[in-house]
Design a protein around this nucleic acid. Structure first.
Lengths: 229, 229
DNA sequence: AGGCTCTGGTATATTATTGGTTCAAAATCG
DNA sequence: CGATTTTGAACCAATAATATACCAGAGCCT
């Protein structure tokens, strides 16, 4: 997700990737990492580069390496990214968004300011340039929903939405989600985003909430449609 | 990505964007930023401009740059996100519950089972024995709302509600909350809890949601009433 | 025990990449 | 207009990355 797709990976990048695997729990305590020569292939980097990454991780205490044997994980997974949030299914996530986002619309009407709306306008524009770029659209889409949450001035709500966004970004079904994003679907979303923004701007809480429900319903439909294929 | 059609970005704008990426968590501790030459392309600015932005960020302590290597995040761990939950105000919390719990009622109607309802019934009984014991009541009350969330079978929602419950327990205003809990108020809550349980049992989603809203409204009132004294 | 293979550890010469610097032209803004 | 910022380009020095070869310990099998 870091900016560019297939950029060449440096030692620091690889260290970051592995560090995240460990924090996330995909690599658990005492697991052995693949041999350096294999990692070198999977990450498309020379062995020396992998080596530097591992040395770095060892100094940080994430990993321990035993000559002739392998390198092993020595770190408990990060507490903050708990199982509940990692194992959330797409449907659980949709239900949660159904709970939160319509009400966020209402609160945004109450507490949103002009600067917020201008920012959301920018994001709408950006999304409308992304009809054929699902990845860029997704990014802007996430930002839009976060900007909406920021309107509420409610740190707790924003935090919760961020957690949810993390679920969305780290997942296999992010890929699946991108598949459902043909230019027609993106077009529909764009219209709905505009409508939401307008309703918030004109201070119509229930209308904004209802359009948001509609928006989420659209998203849920394309989700179930995708999982049937 | 998004560069081409965007308006022109100055050094300050770019610094702000990157700062945002760091605060949001997309760029974590020890991550290496893309090379200046790449950033210059993605942000549609000259390298010198990027350079200024980075120099600025370095002075602010967000980033550290090593010649020949790259520029790295030194994560000033973001206070707002980790403490968002601890610093939540009572009103923020009420708004969040207003978003979540009515919809949780609807989902509970969909997915709740007899065993769940029996458990909630027990908790209602327990609460009704607590007319004069605010602390014990609060405990059972928290359990009741969690049991309701468990009906949804949605791990993500349950997790979120648990986080919120943690906010509630750790706070000074827990004490304040106990003050508002005279036996009359507890009595009202008990009636509302019963009504919610019944509506969920008889599978009336909107009725359950509406009573929950009423319930939260009652709680919010006694909260504001308490903070005025 | 002996032999084989897989593992990390080390060394090195070469190439590629990155930040650091400078400068003059162009663009922007008050 | 004048002041400031941005641009684009070139070049430098520091560092990282690659490719290759060889070593030594661990583990497994006969």
């Amino acid at each position: 997700m870091n900016a560019l797709a297939d950029q060449k990976l440096g030692a620091a990048d690889i260290a970051a990737l592995i560090r995240r695997e460990i924090s996330k729990g995909s690599l658990q305590l005492h697991d052995r990492l693949p041999p350096e020569r294999v990692l070198s292939e999977t990450y498309g980097a020379a062995r020396g580069t992998i080596r530097k990454a591992l040395t770095h991780l060892e100094k940080e205490g994430f990993v321990e390496t035993r000559a002739g044997s392998g390198t092993y994980v020595v770190h408990k997974p990060d507490e903050t990214s708990t199982n509940a949030i990692r194992n959330a299914t797409p449907l659980e996530l949709m239900d949660t968004r159904f709970a939160l986002e319509p009400h966020i619309c209402r609160l945004a009407v109450l507490h949103g300011r002009h600067a917020d709306f201008d920012r959301m306008e920018d994001l709408c524009n950006r999304m409308e340039e992304c009809l054929d770029d699902p990845v860029a659209f997704s990014e802007a889409d996430t930002d839009f929903h976060r900007a909406l949450a920021e309107c509420t001035r409610n740190g707790l709500l924003i935090w919760i939405l961020d957690q949810i966004a993390n679920v969305r970004s780290e997942d296999d079904w992010t890929r699946m989600r991108h598949l459902t994003l043909d230019s027609r679907t993106i077009g529909i979303y764009n219209v709905q985003h505009r409508q939401i923004l307008n309703a918030v701007r004109t201070r119509e809480p229930e209308r904004a909430a209802n359009i948001m429900k509609e928006h989420l319903e659209t998203a849920r439909l394309s989700l179930t449609r995708a999982s049937e294929t």
